[in-house]
Design a protein around this nucleic acid. Structure first.
Ligand SMILES: [Zn+2]
Ligand SMILES: [Zn+2]
Ligand SMILES: [Zn+2]
Ligand SMILES: [Zn+2]
Lengths: 148, 148
DNA sequence: CTCCTTATTGACAATAATTTTCAATAATAA
DNA sequence: TTATTATTGAAAATTATTGTCAATAAGGAG
């Protein structure tokens, strides 16, 4: 097994083995700076290590999700997308989805009040519905510049 | 064709025919006060008009979506859910999704600032990304009371 | 390093949701 | 009533995802 990355310990600590497919998949997610579909991850992985199976990508991505490292998104086109959350350079963001061409824009430049309010809302919901809120997703749907 | 409902004119105006399956499907969506999966819509429709096909439900729901009457949601369990937007008694709302049992809570009791801010954010995004924002979805994920 | 145990893998089959196809049907205009 | 053609239902086709299982390889013990 090659170099020790931050995820190495995380896997081992939970009794999971560090394998080539897993390392590669995390690598790919790590390099990408946006949500990838399983197919896209698979293609990137193949460039680095031909022979890794598609099934393994599904499995690994789900594993990482359970570990809380990866976030799963569904934007309405029938494909699930995955994005590294932990250890990612990319900070938390929200999405703009073009309903015509499917383009997705991430935006992170929140208005200050945005972040403050969101926290406030979360607290209120937590109390009111006794719901243990872990995270949120905010999508704005519309028509992008080119599609107009 | 039975009674004239609000949607009758909308369909006709766009050159669509008013049919029993369509009337029934809209009826079902209209009576429901929450997002339904295609399967759920289908079952309700069968109670009113046995013989309507599942395919037609898929088609109609998509038609209504294109007409802007129905909103499509994906909460991450692989099923699409549909909810009447136009002509619905149910106002705009956001969602709380339990990642353990799948339960979904709608909440409409927004904090005042919530609505104001959201509008502000939308305006800013519209300008900045030249994106024509039509609507948004906000989901909070976590663990519900029973699942804790 | 070598051997052993067993988690992990890849190929393939199996599901499940959604879409497509197409001949039969039924809504509307004439 | 008749003609036109959008719409429908049934069945096949597609697509994303999950399950199965024998072969492989990671990591602990010696
Ligand atoms: Zn956020
Ligand atoms: Zn676009
Ligand atoms: Zn809202
Ligand atoms: Zn729950």
């Amino acid at each position: 097994m090659y170099g020790r990355h931050w995820w190495h310990g995380h896997l081992r600590r939970r009794g999971y083995r560090v394998t080539v497919p897993r390392e590669t998949i995390i690598q790919v997610l790590s390099d990408a700076d946006k949500h990838l579909s399983v197919e896209e991850i698979f293609n990137e992985v193949l460039k680095l290590h031909p022979g890794v199976g598609l099934t393994t990508v599904y499995r690994t991505v789900e594993l990482l999700r359970n570990m809380g490292f990866v976030k799963k998104y569904e934007f309405g086109d029938g494909l699930s997308r995955y994005e590294l959350e932990k250890g990612s350079k990319k900070p938390h963001h929200h999405h703009l989805v073009c309903t015509r061409c499917g383009k997705i824009i991430d935006y992170t430049d929140f208005v200050d009040e945005e972040v403050v309010l969101l926290r406030k809302v979360e607290n209120r919901l937590t109390k009111k519905y006794k719901f243990d809120i872990k995270n949120h997703q905010i999508h704005f749907y519309g028509i992008c510049d080119e599609c107009k």
